[in-house]
């Protein structure tokens, strides 16, 4: 197993302060390419990605996204395309749809980190307002923004852990007795 991959996983952090230095187009495409390889329930790939670089659009999105502390030069919006879900008779409550959003988001953030970029997820936004601002198709629901940029020198260490944990605290071996 590659030590570099494990190290990338362990050293990635959510970054909430970014500079306005632009992100190269090739880097954005590499992140999207990584997302394409994220695991997807039934390999159905109901996620769609919307890349936002335009400054005014990003400003408007931030205004309706109380959880978006970053002023990131690139926003990637992960959407669920409900048309795909309907074609495969997936109910709206199917957990695979939520899991797909998570795997795509994490894959993009790891890819960004591997490219030397900062990233952070944001789910605290008004879905209805985002739909209006982006003129989303009816079948798309906005689920999560991935903010991409360069870490600001002033960026803090991130949200403090509620308590120190190791993988052992999260794991139980075999059956419960």
């Amino acid at each position: 197993m590659s030590e570099a991959v494990l190290n990338n996983i362990k050293t990635r952090r959510v970054v909430r302060e970014m500079t306005d230095e632009p992100v190269q187009r090739e880097q954005i495409e590499a992140i999207l390419e990584a997302a394409r390889w994220a695991p997807s329930g039934g390999n159905l790939r109901p996620n769609r990605y919307i890349v936002l670089e335009d400054a005014e659009t990003r400003r408007l999105i931030r205004l309706v996204s109380p959880g978006m502390f970053q002023r990131a030069p690139v926003l990637i919006l992960v959407c669920t395309n409900w048309q795909v879900a309907a074609e495969h008779h997936l109910p709206a409550t199917d957990r695979a749809l939520l899991i797909d959003i998570g795997t795509a988001g994490q894959t993009m953030m790891l890819a960004a980190h591997a490219l030397g970029l900062a990233s952070g997820p944001v789910t605290s936004f008004s879905k209805e307002a985002v739909k209006i601002i982006l003129n989303l198709p009816e079948t798309y629901s906005p689920e999560m923004f991935i903010c991409i940029g360069h870490r600001a020198e002033t960026a803090g260490a991130g949200m403090r852990a509620w308590k120190k944990i190791s993988w052992r605290d999260l794991t139980h071996w075999e059956r419960f007795k």
Partner: peptide
């Protein structure tokens, strides 16, 4: 208007978030 947008969207998303996020939104 920008502040109003932040407050009204905060009010909506707070319905889906833990109660302790309320102060966080007000602080923002």
């Amino acid at each position: 208007v920008e502040l109003l947008a932040l407050l009204i969207t905060s009010a909506r998303i707070q319905l889906d978030e833990p109660a302790h996020y309320g102060p966080l939104r007000l602080l923002t």
